[in-house]
């Protein structure tokens, strides 16, 4: 099985480990992530004001190109997922907006693509039970906090990946990998997002609260699905009650459990070191 894949800007630069671990895990699970032949930035934010159609043209262009290569598109980064999925819905449901945006990008895209997050591919196309069967190196004994953040879940009526207040998809995956998911209160609260640019105080506070909330419930590891969440959590870790909790991408956890080489997983690229924990737990 081949699924079109949109990496987005960050996965080719500072989050290469997110990309490589995902691709390798996909192969291990029996599907290939075929990177789009041509793609551009999605804009990294879905325009909240509905009259701002210009903001839809970049993601619409991505979708239009992807449609020519297949009927499903998957992403890893939560923000790309949010922008592409919502744009796709606009292109499918609003005839007026579709006309204007298609006029901008000189395409005839109708919103017929299925935009799936990698987590959805695993859950709905592969099945977590299959993932469980494929596990070679179970993450036994690790209490892991799955951090959803905002973009994966909200707004519920557009994203629909899971219940916006009580999601389980992330925890279900971690369970399949053999870890013990820790459900913590702040798992659906914001990390501070783009305020990383000009407001360290807010980011430190919000991300710190996320880590506190997770470690307070006993988490020894944080798992993310977005490079910006990852960055903010790692950067703010020191502010949170002096905790040494490592932060990794969920695909790194997946690859680890599937028994991939540590080099492919690229743990050394993370700002936090997960190795002591893995050694302590006897996983490596």
């Amino acid at each position: 099985m081949k699924i079109s894949y949109y990496p987005g800007c960050t996965l080719n630069t500072v989050a290469k480990q997110f990309d490589s671990s995902a691709r390798d895990s996909a192969l291990a699970m029996g599907f290939e992530m075929a990177e789009l032949r041509q793609w551009n930035c999605c804009g990294a934010t879905f325009p909240l004001a509905p009259d701002n159609l210009m903001g839809l043209s970049a993601p619409a262009k991505v979708l239009s190109g992807a449609r020519k290569e297949g009927d499903t598109l998957t992403t890893l980064c939560s923000v790309c997922y949010n922008v592409l999925k919502r744009t796709n819905k606009v292109m499918r449901d609003s005839r007026d907006k579709r006309g204007v945006v298609n006029g901008f990008i000189e395409e005839e895209y109708d919103g017929s693509l299925d935009v799936l997050h990698y987590l959805e591919v695993l859950r709905d196309r592969i099945g977590f039970d299959k993932v469980k069967e494929a596990v070679k190196r179970p993450l036994k004994g690790i209490k892991a906090g799955a951090y959803y953040g905002c973009m994966l879940l909200r707004p519920f009526e557009d994203m629909g990946i899971d219940n916006a207040e009580r999601p389980t998809i992330f925890e279900d995956l971690l369970k399949a990998l053999g870890a013990e998911p820790v459900e913590f209160p702040n798992r659906i609260e914001c990390c501070g997002a783009h305020l990383a640019m000009n407001n360290d105080e807010v980011v430190t506070r919000l991300s710190g609260a996320v880590i506190d909330s997770a470690t307070g419930m006993g988490a020894e590891l944080m798992v993310t699905s977005c490079p910006l969440c990852q960055y903010n959590l790692e950067k703010s870790r020191g502010a949170a009650a002096g905790d040494e909790v490592p932060v990794i991408y969920f695909t790194q956890a997946l690859g680890l459990a599937l028994g991939q080489d540590l080099e492919t997983l690229g743990f050394e690229k993370n700002a936090t070191d997960v190795m002591p924990l893995l050694k302590k737990k006897g996983i490596v």
Partner: peptide
């Protein structure tokens, strides 16, 4: 910041 932060933060920040 420009070196380490994810591009998406910078793109998003510019837009906001």
């Amino acid at each position: 910041l420009l070196k380490k932060a994810p591009q998406q933060a910078i793109v998003c920040g510019f837009r906001k």
